[in-house]
């Protein structure tokens, strides 16, 4: 199996605060991979490093075979067209409505006709559980959960091979959250997506993730499937998984 992401000895430092101290992990193709850990342990930061929004202090991160810590502009652009990112707080473009948010990458990167783009937008909206009649609303006019869904639809717009999701189910009602789990499982199976996601949702962790890494105290304390979690002990693991 091919490794889509490989993190080698990554150290992250903000000022004089060390967030990661030598992380090692890898994500296989077609896998749903979780990043878990207590609040503030650096899950979002690691994900931001993978998508080149943050610099690593030392170490290497390989994404789709390329070292993102030293990479040329052209390769950066290629990478960016091949992944989708859902931010923890949606990060929708506030001056565009939902439909325009989703259509943005399609308009920019493809030469598809506007009617085709519209159909794709409508499809994506329905896939993530939004109603096409809400398509003209602006980000400030929709609820937190709807923002999450719209953000996911935008991340899926180009049918990327690699998807980064930061807490996709937080802020969703339980029914939407389970529908969301079913959706990403289905997308993974159909499109052979590789998904890296941060989650605190035990249901999602059990139900969707093939493997996950737990970051605690600047290090990875566990990497592997849910079944193996009882082999390790740490404050976070004990409290989170055994109560």
């Amino acid at each position: 199996m091919q490794q889509v992401i490989k993190v080698e000895n990554v150290k992250t430092v903000f000022g004089n605060k060390v967030v990661h101290d030598g992380l090692n992990l890898h994500v296989n193709e077609g896998e749903i991979y979780g990043l878990l850990g207590p609040s503030g342990c650096g899950k979002t930061t690691l994900m931001r490093e993978m998508v080149m929004l943050e610099h690593v202090y030392s170490g290497h991160i390989y994404v789709l075979g390329k070292d993102v810590t030293r990479i040329s502009q052209i390769q950066v652009q290629q990478l960016r067209e091949n992944w989708g990112v859902l931010f923890q707080f949606g990060a929708l473009f506030s001056s565009l409505n939902i439909a325009q948010n989703i259509a943005r990458p399609l308009v920019e990167y493809t030469s598809l006709s506007s009617s085709m783009i519209e159909e794709i937008v409508s499809l994506k909206l329905q896939l993530v559980g939004l109603k096409p009649k809400d398509a003209l609303l602006y980000p400030s006019q929709i609820s937190g959960g709807m923002k999450k869904k719209a953000g996911l639809a935008r991340a899926l717009a180009m049918d990327p091979k690699l998807l980064f999701l930061d807490e996709p189910t937080s802020g969703l009602d339980p029914i939407s959250a389970r529908e969301f789990d079913a959706l990403i499982l289905k997308l993974r199976d159909l499109l052979n997506l590789t998904i890296v996601m941060v989650s605190h949702d035990l249901h999602s962790i059990k139900g969707t993730m093939d493997r996950f890494a737990i970051i605690d105290n600047k290090k990875i304390v566990y990497e592997g499937p849910y079944e193996g979690i009882h082999t390790v002990h740490s404050d976070f693991v004990d409290k989170f998984f055994r109560e």
């Binding site: 439909a99 519209e118 159909e119 937008v121 409508s122 499809l123 329905q126 896939l127 096409p132 009649k133 398509a135 003209l136 289905k186 199976d189 159909l190 499109l191």
Partner: peptide, 21 residues
């Protein structure tokens, strides 16, 4: 089969036009 399922998935979400401003 996998591709058939993708088409199935799309088919099962009936086309709904977006509202026009």
């Amino acid at each position: 089969n996998r591709f058939l399922q993708t088409i199935e998935l799309v088919k099962n979400t009936p086309p709904q036009p977006l509202p026009k401003p």
